[in-house]
Design a protein around this nucleic acid. Sequence first.
DNA 1: GCGCGCAAGCTTGCATGCAAGGCGTAGAGT
DNA 2: ACTCTACGCCTTGCATGCAAGCTTGCGCGC
Lengths: 221, 221
Amino acid sequence: MAEPKTASPPVSETEGSAADRAYAATKDAIIRGELESGALLSEAVIAGELGISRTPVHEAFLRLAAEGLLILASRRGAVVRPLSPSEADDVLEMREAIEASCAARVIAGDRVAEVLPELKALLAEQQAAVDSDDLDRFIDADDRLHAAVIAAARNPVASQFAGLLRDRQHRMRNLLIRVKSGQMAAALKDHTKLVRAIEKRDAAAYAETLRTHVNRNRGVL
Amino acid sequence: MAEPKTASPPVSETEGSAADRAYAATKDAIIRGELESGALLSEAVIAGELGISRTPVHEAFLRLAAEGLLILASRRGAVVRPLSPSEADDVLEMREAIEASCAARVIAGDRVAEVLPELKALLAEQQAAVDSDDLDRFIDADDRLHAAVIAAARNPVASQFAGLLRDRQHRMRNLLIRVKSGQMAAALKDHTKLVRAIEKRDAAAYAETLRTHVNRNRGVL
DNA sequence: GCGCGCAAGCTTGCATGCAAGGCGTAGAGT
DNA sequence: ACTCTACGCCTTGCATGCAAGCTTGCGCGC
């Protein structure tokens, strides 16, 4: 799950098992939008491109289907799952629910102090991104901020779910509309309020702010 | 291995693909506790029991590992994931977060009327289970009640996540401690309050009641 | 007796072969 | 001209073979 910040290097991945490489390569192609929605792709093609056999590609496709990125049509092929606006809502809603729950646990578990420095550093990073009008940098920091809150809850199930949602959200971001630069300032303001809510140990305020924050993103899509 | 299926009397599963059968059979064995925590199992064994080859079993193991029921040790085998109390907390916490979110959506989306009959029927079913002191029946109705709320939200992502959590929760129920009969009455009371909260379109009350309800279960484990 | 190395036996990971199923198209029949 | 059928190509699903890795236990040297 820990990918380099600049996640678009050449395709000459030589680490990990063949199945992992097939999984990572295909997922990346889907998320980046290289493979369009509805595209019909076959195991043999991917296998050929990666220089491996169909077996690990088959396993990769199964994983991707389980994660909602592919739809497997038995003996016909695999189609890249088209994403609908309602799906975007669904994903965002789950992210909101999970993150709010995690924030509440961090606050209830009295672990605010140990995450606050990281959160504030990420806020500063986002401010820098806004100042330099660097959208990619902003989005990266955005991801890391939300991920930090979830990680702080130390709930592996939550982290796993959030990871799945994050992938799908990335795909939506890349495929539908890239957030306009003007949105950055508003998002940063939301984030500042979120961190302040954590600092004040106010789980309800966090949840409420998160709700408006997510709704703002929802409108963008 | 291409001999008549003389060795498949116990498992009468004839539907679905071989991979699905391997998945269902293994998952069921894990959830029911037939396979103990920490048990080391190999693909070849399962394949032999089901009369299929290792390939579909391998795929099944991958799915089960992704769902947190197995841990794959490369070239050593697959161990049934031991469950810890903290994992139980994690699972319950996520269930709570997801269900509360779904209830809120049902209420906000003004779909209360269309689920209320089903919920009330399930309450009646639970009452009957309490009267006849039928724990299995109660648990089944319990599952269906919570599932009904989530299904009513019509969020496929939520349903998928809830399904994964339900499996793990079933396993915990079967492995750790079976809820005592005395708990049924309290649980039913909680459920009644939950349904009433939905009826009153009070999402906050639902969330709060759900919190105490889950915490009650948490104490049992 | 004790420690060390090596090999055998298990495991999975992947490649490949084969069969079954879906889909399009061409061709025959009306 | 239109429809129905059958064939061929495409796909996946599964079985099997082979290689590589980890563990373990046995034998050998000390």
